[in-house]
Design a protein around this nucleic acid. Structure first.
Length: 355
DNA sequence: AAGGCGGGGAC
DNA sequence: GTCCCAGCCTT
């Protein structure tokens, strides 16, 4: 153990831990490969960071692999059809990310010559890139000294300095503390090291302080408050809303679907025509079926929870056995319809109707 | 400054 | 059930 531990020693201690314990990830150039001279692909780093916003590594892994296989370079993605990208993103959530992913790729091709700028101020101007992602791409892809502050880092720093100020009020203090720790040498590896620490050892519920490389300097560990940090201001309860969707199938197997408006919930995604979703205290809005059919109501509802409300969806299923143009949406031929292109709540409705 | 915006895994 | 997650954008 080191005697007379100084603040200046902390980054190096963490980097030594990272050299041994860095997790394998498809988008990561590990410390050994980096030392051997391998450079990270800024396109891959950016892609992974967008997908990782509010999303776990385990969930992102397969999506990242599919996107990189289908669109290996930013030029390929910029040239893609919107519907193909939205369909490939289906199930990952926060669909504004997918719309901004395309906008960003096209901006990089049109205004930056097809290369991501190695500059924080230029990165943060791009669609879908905020303070965290700009710092992550600048440090991880270009090894520039910038400080990432995500949920992991907030937790690690709040514990390291035993900060009890609740989030989000504590953010400026946490950022100042985190920035003071960021080293000039290997800032990209250091950024990933802090986040790995937060994702593995310094976990939310039961941190493994006994094996933490920062065990000795950690103030919360000494005070016994680590599991209670960071403090957060309480969240509002989720209300319940309800609505109706109509699943119409033609005799040739085609399904009636519509593309939702770009703005708002599930924006730009495929979905079943239906009613508005209103608070359960109100009656269901009257909504005409999108087409004439022998409509039947399914016995069970679809239940789904979004960020800020619970949804109860009543499913109507109908066979269309005549020539008629739908009031809304368009029929998608059987061979052209992939249920995996649907956001999860719409796929739940499909599963209930077809099983 | 606050709220909208998905989905899945851990507990 | 609740909480959390490599946050961003709009108002």
């Amino acid at each position: 153990m080191r005697e007379n531990l100084s603040q200046d020693d902390l980054p190096q201690i963490l980097l030594e831990w990272y050299d041994v314990h860095a997790r394998e990830m498809p988008w990561r150039v590990g410390p050994a490969a980096r030392k051997a001279g391998q450079r990270s692909d800024p396109y891959a780093v950016w892609m992974s960071e967008i997908m990782l916003q509010q999303t776990t590594v385990a969930t992102v892994r397969d999506y990242f692999t599919r996107f990189m296989a289908r669109w290996p370079r930013v030029q390929d993605l910029a040239a893609a059809e919107d519907a193909d990208v939205m369909g490939e993103w289906a199930g990952l959530g926060y669909y504004a990310r997918a719309r901004n992913l395309l906008k960003c790729a096209r901006t990089v091709v049109d205004e930056h010559g097809g290369s991501f700028p190695a500059d924080y101020d230029a990165l943060i101007k791009l669609p879908g890139i905020g303070p965290y992602t700009a710092a992550a791409v600048a440090s991880i892809a270009f090894d520039l000294r910038h400080t990432v502050l995500d949920g992991n880092v907030e937790r690690v720093i709040a514990r390291l300095y035993n900060i009890h100020t609740p989030l989000p009020a504590a953010k400026p203090e946490l950022m100042a503390r985190a920035d003071a720790l960021t080293p000039d040498l290997r800032p990209g590896d250091y950024a990933q090291a802090v986040m790995d620490l937060g994702a593995t050892i310094c976990s939310p519920r039961s941190p493994a302080c006994g094996i933490c490389p920062w065990r000795d300097p950690c103030a919360a560990r000494a005070a016994g408050t680590a599991p209670d940090l960071p403090k957060k201001t309480p969240k509002k309860a989720k209300p319940v809303r309800h609505g109706v969707v109509y699943l119409a199938q033609r005799a040739d197997g085609a399904w009636l679907l519509e593309t939702r408006p770009d703005k708002g919930l599930l924006g730009g995604m495929l979905g079943w025509p239906g009613s508005e979703w209103v608070d359960s205290a109100h009656p269901l809005p009257q909504t005409a079926p999108p087409i004439g059919a022998d409509w039947q109501v399914l016995a069970g509802d679809v239940r789904h929870t979004f960020t800020h409300f619970h949804l109860l969806l009543t499913i109507h299923v109908g066979r269309v056995d005549h020539e008629e143009d739908p009031l809304r949406g368009a029929f998608v031929p059987r061979g052209q319809f992939r249920p995996s292109d649907l956001p999860t709540v719409m796929r739940k409705a499909f599963d209930l109707a077809t099983k």
